[in-house]
């Protein structure tokens, strides 16, 4: 056996091991959540709010946190899409190719992406107090939108950068202006990427605990308006896991299972709509 062959074999084994490791981690996490969570999971968990003594192991469920998380993640994702899509269109259509400003904006998104979400939480909290307001679903949405915006922008941007310059030339050369080119051509061509970016953002928004800690608060009631505080699943898991009662700890795993299922459902729905919408994309 010669050296090149050994090298080839070595890396092949390493790659297989790495793939196996990822798969194992995924299965281990899912396994743990299902193993501990499934016995505690019941219709009551999903459909009712915590009743008196829920945190002592008595009746009730986490409907407040399920609804809260859903509202919060949807709201934050929509807000950051409304801000993020125009930003990426400016980067890729309105600014010239090779623009220094575009590079700077991309760099700042990379930096913001790396900022821990507790920092956003503190920032949102300060802003909230400055405006003389209290923790509410609205402030949670604003803060979490800031958390997911950089990831959203970079994910859409990466897809838009792959769009060949000729496509822009083709649109401009029939006399379209940049705005028409952006919305009629770029947004359409990047649609699968926009769907993926929205998904990533939804997952991150639903799973964030630090940013909502000060800004959204926590309540046992199902939220009915933007001005009320709202419960979220990550915080519910945190509180339940922190109790000394094994029944309540088990409910934390059930909540984690619900959170995972929620994200999975939204992912599948988005993929299905995405693949229907991307019929016209040029490959």
């Amino acid at each position: 056996m010669n050296w090149r062959k050994i090298e080839e074999e070595f890396f092949l084994v390493m790659m297989r091991l790495a793939s196996l490791l990822i798969l194992a981690a995924f299965l281990a996490i899912m396994g743990t959540v299902i193993y501990y969570g499934l016995p505690a999971l019941s219709w009551e968990m999903i459909f009712s709010a915590p009743k008196g003594g829920f945190y002592l192991g008595k009746e009730g469920g986490v409907a407040n946190a399920i609804v809260g998380t859903f509202y919060l993640a949807c709201g934050a994702t929509i807000v950051s899409l409304i801000i993020g899509l125009p930003v990426t269109l400016v980067l890729n259509v309105f600014l010239k190719r090779g623009s220094k400003l575009a590079e700077f904006i991309r760099f700042s998104f990379d930096v913001l992406w790396g900022v821990p979400s507790i920092v956003y939480g503190a920032f949102g909290f300060t802003l909230m107090l400055y405006m003389g307001m209290r923790a509410s679903l609205l402030w949670g949405i604003i803060t979490v939108a800031l958390v997911v915006l950089p990831a959203m922008c970079r994910a859409i941007d990466e897809v838009m950068r792959m769009i060949p310059g000729e496509l822009q030339d083709a649109s401009l050369s029939v006399g379209a202006n940049k705005c028409e080119t952006a919305f009629k051509v770029f947004a359409r061509q990047a649609l699968p990427g926009i769907v993926t970016a929205t998904l990533i953002s939804f997952g991150r928004a639903a799973g964030d605990a630090a940013a909502v800690l000060f800004t959204t608060g926590f309540t046992d009631a199902v939220p009915t308006s933007l001005a009320e505080p709202a419960a979220t699943l990550p915080l519910a898991i945190f509180f339940q896991l922190g109790t000394p009662f094994p029944e309540v700890q088990q409910r934390a795993y059930a909540s984690a299972l619900i959170l995972t299922a929620l994200i999975l459902l939204v992912s599948i729905a988005a993929r299905l709509t995405g693949s229907r919408l991307s019929k016209y994309v040029i490959k």
């Binding site: 000729e166 030339d169 083709a170 401009l172 050369s173 006399g175 051509v185 359409r188 994309v281």
Partner: peptide
């Protein structure tokens, strides 16, 4: 600029249909 570009059809190196029908 759009009025000028309208006067000229461009056929690029690679065919570049728009992402539509």
């Amino acid at each position: 600029v759009t009025a000028i570009r309208r006067k000229m059809g461009l056929l690029s190196q690679r065919p570049c249909p728009l992402p539509m029908s």
